[in-house]
């Protein structure tokens, strides 16, 4: 079963890293086909950016960009003023938002999941240049929403990627996994 995920965030926020961590965790969870790639644009810090991930139990031959995602992850809800994040979302697709609000408090024409990744990042003291790192908790939350990706694999992928702060990022991912609400 192919699952396609789009990450929306701002340049420098870690959307591409999130896609890579998810792909790595999916591979560790036993999926044969995984992919992670940035939107092929001119990226700059602060501007809205997109990253993609694909997960399948079979080898993936698709090389095109994702147009009809199963899950959309929004790292910064502020970009929803300028980007239509539900564009192309599959009928039973899910939007995962980084917000302290509950899904019932969000008005969107689709299934909504929420997790307060910013607060989780602050509590775990994962900051880069003073900015909370929300990508690792959001990947943790995805492990709850996606069949075939387990949280242990997410933590392992995080530990492989981050030298120092690996533990704090892995803890943040686990906390988000436990706190995400659909």
């Amino acid at each position: 079963m192919l699952k396609e995920i789009i990450f929306y965030g701002r340049g420098g926020q870690g959307g591409v890293t999130a896609a890579n961590l998810l792909a790595s965790a999916a591979l560790k969870s036993g999926n044969k086909g995984v992919q992670a790639f940035p939107f092929f644009g001119a990226e700059r810090r602060g501007a809205p950016v997109k990253a993609f991930a694909r997960i399948s139990d079979e080898e993936i031959y698709l090389r095109s960009q994702i147009r009809e995602p199963d899950v959309v992850v929004v790292l910064d809800t502020g970009i929803m003023d300028v980007v239509n994040v539900t564009e192309g979302l599959k009928e039973d697709g899910i939007v995962l938002l980084n917000t302290p609000r509950k899904p019932s408090e969000v008005e969107m024409p689709c299934r909504v999941a929420t997790v307060d990744a910013t607060t989780i990042a602050l509590n775990n003291k994962i900051l880069v240049g003073g900015i909370p790192v929300v990508n690792t908790p959001l990947v943790g939350a995805l492990a709850k929403l996606l069949d075939g990706v387990n949280i242990e694999a997410v933590k392992e992928a995080i530990k492989e990627r981050f030298g120092k702060n690996a533990e704090a990022n892995a803890n943040a991912a686990e906390q988000a996994y436990n706190e995400v609400v659909l």
Binding site: A19, L27, V34, F37, I60, R63
Partner: peptide, 12 residues
């Protein structure tokens, strides 16, 4: 191989 489509895409 294709720029970005393969050069910047993570695959196993």
């Amino acid at each position: 191989y294709d720029g970005f489509i393969l050069s910047h895409t993570s695959m196993p």
